[in-house]
Design a protein around this nucleic acid. Structure first.
Lengths: 165, 165
DNA sequence: GATTTTGTACTCGGATAGGAAGTGTCCGAGTACACATGG
DNA sequence: CCATGTGTACTCGGACACTTCCTATCCGAGTACAAAATC
């Protein structure tokens, strides 16, 4: 029951990419530098996000990443599943069927324990799917009265954003 | 985002221990044999459950494990936390404070992303804490019209349970 | 025969190897710009 | 002066080592019974 470190990097990266203007892209190296993490490792997760249809890539010089859809349509669940994989956390190995006394019935009812665990995970995912990247940014802006955090991000984007036009 | 294999073993073991009569104990070797898993590995998790106050141990020959409290007071969350540890799955490394442009404010507000992830995890845990071992057993018994599953467990307990009296 | 002593077998407990997955890194394929060259 | 060809520099993409944690295992501490020795 632990999420990989890359999830946090991925979410922060998506949040930052949501701040650039339409048509602009940001190189993975810039994202890694801003967050102070390994560029190669971040790249790995950005590729996963790209494969999941959350990010778009622009190859070549002046290339980089941008959101593939609006921040309102990207939920935390999308990002988490893209990075961590979509398999449920609790994998019922049906150990009832092992051992010397296996459950005889072929059309075996799903294990009640498994059902309960999956219910809990559905609740977890539902909670995550309820939060969009746009809402996160809105929350941050609402509490950032001094504007320091926003200014920091904007300054960095001004410096590193690449507009194709 | 994946739970260890031992969680399932632990829950099944607790469920089985809930079936023995008051004062009776069951050896770890019997539990392992019934579930068809490695005795030494199961022992590891049973120790964790014992340390968490979920199970009681009786040393020596005729020894074994029993529940430390009634099945109504043991939730799935208790077992999961005992085996997996109680640290939250999402550990916010505060990567905002890394990199060349760290967040300046010292009393830094908790990261909104972290807050959202922890909210989701609270929902997950709340769902797990809502289900007790007793309820699981009740569900199984309710759907086990033929009584085959119950008979299997009872037969095994009759054979391996040890009463101290 | 009853009691004490000793031994053994069985239990849990913690410390110890092996393997899979996450973490971190590297080099290759592809593209756009810049420059040099020829018309 | 303009168009074209070439070279270079920069990007993402996938394949390759290293570390950490999960998986699996072994041996030691402690206890209850059983048997043997003694009173």
């Amino acid at each position: 029951m632990k999420l990989s470190e890359g999830v946090e990097q991925a979410i922060h990266s998506v949040a930052m990419l949501a701040g650039l203007t339409r048509g602009g892209v940001l190189a993975a190296a810039a994202l890694a530098e801003f967050h102070g993490v390994s560029p190669s490792y971040l790249l790995k997760h950005l590729q996963a996000l790209s494969g999941a249809g959350i990010l778009e890539t622009v190859p070549g010089p002046k290339g980089g990443y941008r959101l593939a859809k609006t921040a309102e349509k990207i939920t935390l669940l999308d990002v988490v599943l893209a990075v961590e994989g979509s398999e449920p956390a609790f994998r019922c190995a049906e150990i009832r069927q092992r051992g010397p006394n296996p459950v005889p019935e072929k059309p075996v009812r799903p294990c009640e324990i498994n059902a309960a665990m999956l219910r809990a995970e559905r609740a977890y995912r539902a909670e995550l799917s309820r939060v969009t990247i746009a809402e996160i940014l809105g929350e941050v802006a609402a509490h950032d009265t001094s504007g320091a955090v926003a200014a920091r991000g904007c300054a960095f984007l001004e410096l590193h954003e690449r507009r194709s036009i």
